[in-house]
């Protein structure tokens, strides 16, 4: 007779662990598929900027004159730091240190909020320089691209705070941390997009 494992409700399961696709957590795979599609979304926005780059750089104001590289570098460091706190949070839940997991989650959300505050300041300064959504090609391409990234960060902060609240009810622990891991994947992707935007738009 084939070796079987009896399910808690009486269903027979194969004794050997599933392999290949069936062994994967479908929520995690779904998040990766979403992130793959989001790559194309952000690439389309970056492509629009680059296709119109010659016009943008010929216009007034010149992007390199109004974009503060040093200030944006600080924002990049903040987002990189939030990626570190995110993995430390996940590691905390994985070793069943719920307090550490929650504290690092909260730290990640705070760093995300700091980033959003910096981005709001940057948008405000740009508006003073005359760069708005209706001011021309540079304003449209730049603000829509960075604005969508900021929206992703905002959604991420809300998600992290939700995880923090749920973790307070004992929902996440060493046996159940998938919710935090999926939120972390999303958060790291937001960092990944900023790596691309910072290099391609601000530095080049």
């Amino acid at each position: 007779m084939a070796a079987t494992t009896t399910h808690g409700q009486g269903h027979a399961l194969p004794a050997h662990p599933p392999s290949g696709l069936e062994s994967l957590d479908m929520r995690k795979l779904g998040m990766w598929i979403f992130l793959g599609s989001d790559c194309v979304f952000f690439a389309s926005l970056i492509t629009t900027y680059f296709v119109n780059r010659s016009l943008i750089f010929a216009g007034d104001p010149h992007p390199h004159h109004v974009l503060g590289i040093n200030f944006t570098a600080v924002l990049a460091f903040i987002l990189l730091g939030s990626s570190l706190t995110m993995v430390l949070s996940l590691a905390g839940f994985q070793r069943n240190d719920i307090t550490a997991g929650r504290n690092w989650l909260l730290a990640t959300a705070i760093l995300g909020t700091l980033f959003l505050t910096g981005q709001a300041l940057e948008f405000s300064n740009l508006a003073h320089e005359g760069v708005t959504l209706s001011s021309g090609l540079f304003g449209q391409c730049f603000l829509i691209m960075t604005g969508f990234h900021g929206t992703h960060v905002f959604i991420g902060v809300i998600w992290l705070l939700s995880c923090w609240l749920f973790a307070g009810t004992g929902r996440f622990n060493a046996k159940n941390f998938m919710g935090v891991e999926i939120a972390g994947l999303y958060w790291h992707f937001v960092d990944l997009v900023w790596v691309a935007i910072f290099t391609l738009i601000y530095l080049i």
Binding site: K28, L29, L35, G36, S37, A43, I46, T47, V87, L192
Partner: peptide
């Protein structure tokens, strides 16, 4: 970031497939 923070280095290779597909499409378009 992808290998260590998003754990693609240690996770199943199946998770790499959709991300690689998206990145190739994105780079190709750009």
């Amino acid at each position: 970031i992808m290998m260590y923070y998003m754990h693609l280095k240690s996770d199943s290779a199946w998770f790499t497939v959709p991300m690689a597909f998206g990145l190739i499409l994105a780079a190709g378009m750009l």
